Amino acid sequence: MKPEFETLPLVDNAGGHRFELSVNHATAYMEYGERDGAVALFHTEVPAQLEGRGVGTALVEKVLAEVERRGQPLIPLCPFVTSYLKRHPEWQRLVAPAYQRWFQPSPQA
């Protein structure tokens, strides 16, 4: 995560079922829900004025750290989160067992 985002607080907007990260008066967010005791991440949205600056990555990293802090398994349904997890296998330890297969190498043909 870029240093400029490290001190920004992640807000859990429980009423809106989303995690939020505000940067320069704009808010990126990740929609989530609870499923069988796990945190399901559905969708990530980064405003156009924040795109390409690493805000989405900072949001994902902060959310993953929060999920880990809560001690809940993760259900990564958001394509942005899934893509991040594939590039950063160290976070795959949070993924609920039923979803681990998404991150296993494909069998060779």
Rank of each mutant, 00 (worst) to 15 (best):
W91K: 03
Y29F: 14
P76F: 02
E6R: 14
L50R: 09
A38W: 12
G15S: 06
W102I: 03
L85C: 05
P73E: 08
Y99P: 00
P9N: 08
G56R: 01
Q100R: 12
S83M: 13
L59S: 01
G52R: 03
A28G: 08
E31A: 14
F103H: 01
P47L: 06
R35Y: 14
T7R: 15
A109I: 12
Q108S: 13
F5P: 00
E45Q: 10
W102E: 00
A40R: 05
V46G: 03
T44S: 09
R87P: 05
G71W: 10
T57S: 15
D12H: 08
L77K: 02
H17S: 13
P73C: 09
R35H: 14
E4L: 02
P73R: 07
T27Y: 08
W102N: 05
V95G: 00
Y29S: 09
L50V: 04
R53W: 02
N24P: 03
R70S: 11
F5S: 00
N24Q: 15
P73D: 10
K86N: 12
R70W: 12
E61V: 11
P105S: 15
Y84V: 00
L64A: 12
L85S: 01
G52Y: 07
G52S: 00
G33T: 15
A28S: 09
F5Q: 00
G52M: 02
T27R: 03
T27I: 08
E4Q: 14
G71M: 05
K62L: 02
S106V: 13
Q108P: 10
Q100N: 07
A98E: 10
H88P: 07
V46F: 08
